[in-house]
Structure formats: structure tokens, C-alpha cells
Write a protein that binds this DNA or RNA. Structure first.
Length: 276
DNA sequence: TCTAACGTTTCA
DNA sequence: TGAAACGTTAGA
């Protein structure tokens, strides 16, 4: 239950240590860390070794980031494709998932973790913004190469087919991937004025049929913590407990998943590549 | 195939 | 009600 006072002291020290690590602009160079009590701790999730600077989490401070989503919002077109054609094959779903995956990698960094209110603000913002933006090269560096981004867009070539969607920046978290396919959370469509878009309700029923593991949000303090305390029960019982360090347990995952909330926002878009 | 870790169940 | 154990999933 309660941690021993020595544990608390240790953790305070660890937190102090980590406070300088979490915001380290070049954390990737650390392949191994030793905390003050001599424990070598590495992130259990290798992908978390690639930490993000705080600026990466700040969506609204960067118009280029926003416009990036305009350019890369083509991913949504796939969803439109899905919703338009019920007879779509499973293999096509896979292909679309793959493409979505690529696109989401480009978008997740700056949009991850938006709540629905932020999303609404986001969409409002886009009402006044065109699609003419060409992102500066630096904006393209967020985990996706120029070539990849271009090829994805070219492959899909859907903005003209789905004018509703081509200019809309969708957070990957607003996509819901189920065994039945990939589609948008209904609330997202409401926000986008697409609530009447066909088949969403039918597809939405598939969400409830399959349980999906939630993913760490990657942004809360525990998620950003990259060192296992090695002291808590989870660390001590890693073999049998199969649990992440208590101090690294995502705040979002600690909460009970609300069905309604889950539809709006799977934690930063489950089923996509979150940390890479 | 292995490892990390989420979800569920069981137990104190 | 929280901790522990275990099943299971997802990614490398």
C-alpha cells in the first residue's frame, strides 16, 4: 500500500534527477542511466527512448504544425473510403491501416493528447485556414521523411475525391481501428460537421465487440518518466506482475476507460504507432 | 519468438 | 480496495 519513507525519499531524488532528464533536448544519446542509488535503469519500452521536447507537445503554439495536418490530413480520406464502401476487402483494410499508420506518424507528435475541447478549437481554427500551406522542411522531420509523406499522399490521392476530408486535420486518436476496419469516432464527425456521413453507426458498433488494449498517452508525467524506480512492487515483481513501474504508469490508463470518452479519443490513437 | 505492459481475476 | 498473479496483446 504505502511506500516506506525511505522509498519516498528515493523517489524524490529520482524525480529531481529525472526532471532534468525529461526535458533534456537530446535524451536519445543516453542509452543507459544510473540513478542516484546506483540502479541502472533503462526504459522498458525502447520506443520511449526517443523522448520529445516539450515543444513537440505544444500543438497550438505552432501554426506550421497545424498546417502540417492540413497537408497530411489525407489519412482521413481513407476513412471516407471505408465508410463509402462497405464491401471493402480485408486486405484493403490492411493496406489502409498501413497508410494511416504512415500518416499518423507524421501527425501524432503535435496533436497527441488533444482533448475534445481542444479538438473543437482546432477545427475552428481550420475553418479560417486554407490548404495552401507548404510546411517548412523542419516540420517534416517529425518522424517521417519527405519522401514518405509525399508518397503517402500521392498513393492515396484522395483530397479531390473527398473534399470534406482532405483539409481536415484528424488526430490519429480520432480514428478507431477495429477488426471491422478503421473509421472515425462519431464525435469527431460531429465536430467536423460530418455526422450524417453514412455507416458510422454501423461501424461504431464494432468497437464494442472487440476489446482493445489502450496505449500509454506518452505525455503525462509518468509516461514521460523514463526510469524505473526498481523499488516499487511492480518493478520488484516484474516477472510475475507484468506491470510497468508504478511511477511510470500512465495517468490515463489509471483511469477507468469511459465508453463515451473512448469513442472520442482513444488515448492518443490506439492502434497507431505512438512513440516512433 | 521474446519482451513489455494492459486488462482481468483472485486474494488478503 | 489495493496488490499480486496471470492471460493476453502488441511491437521489435
Amino acid at each position: 500500500m504505502s511506500e516506506p519513507s525511505s522509498q519516498l525519499n528515493i523517489d524524490k531524488k529520482l524525480n529531481l534527477l529525472e526532471s532534468s532528464i525529461v526535458d533534456d533536448p537530446l535524451p536519445a544519446i543516453h542509452s543507459e542511466r544510473r540513478n542516484k542509488i546506483g540502479i541502472i535503469s533503462e526504459p522498458l519500452n525502447k520506443s520511449l527512448k526517443k523522448s520529445r521536447s516539450l515543444s513537440n507537445y505544444s500543438t497550438f503554439g505552432s501554426s506550421s504544425s497545424v498546417n502540417d495536418h492540413l497537408d497530411k490530413g489525407v489519412a482521413l480520406s481513407n476513412v471516407g473510403d471505408l465508410t463509402l464502401d462497405k464491401s471493402i476487402s480485408t486486405s484493403k483494410h490492411k493496406r489502409i491501416s498501413h497508410l494511416l499508420n504512415k500518416s499518423s506518424r507524421a501527425t501524432e507528435v503535435s496533436v497527441d493528447g488533444l482533448n475534445s475541447l481542444q479538438f473543437m478549437q482546432y477545427t475552428d481554427m481550420f475553418k479560417g485556414i486554407g490548404t495552401e500551406h507548404v510546411p517548412p522542411p523542419t516540420d517534416l522531420a517529425n518522424g517521417i521523411s519527405d519522401m514518405e509523406a509525399v508518397s503517402t499522399a500521392e498513393t492515396m490521392n484522395l483530397s479531390s475525391e473527398f473534399p470534406y476530408l482532405g483539409a481536415f486535420p484528424f488526430n490519429p486518436g480520432l480514428f478507431i481501428m477495429t477488426p471491422a476496419g478503421v473509421f472515425l469516432a462519431e464525435s469527431a464527425l460531429h465536430m467536423a460537421g460530418l455526422a450524417e456521413y453514412p455507416t458510422q453507426n454501423e461501424l461504431a458498433s464494432a468497437i464494442n465487440s472487440g476489446k482493445k488494449k489502450r496505449k500509454r498517452c506518452g505525455m503525462c508525467p509518468p509516461c514521460r518518466r523514463r526510469i524505473n524506480c526498481e523499488q516499487c512492487s511492480s518493478c520488484r515483481n516484474r516477472k510475475t506482475g507484468h506491470q510497468i513501474c508504478k511511477f511510470r504508469k500512465c495517468e490515463e490508463l489509471k483511469k477507468k476507460p469511459s465508453p463515451a470518452l473512448e469513442k472520442v479519443m482513444l488515448p492518443t490513437g490506439a492502434a497507431f504507432r505512438w512513440f516512433q
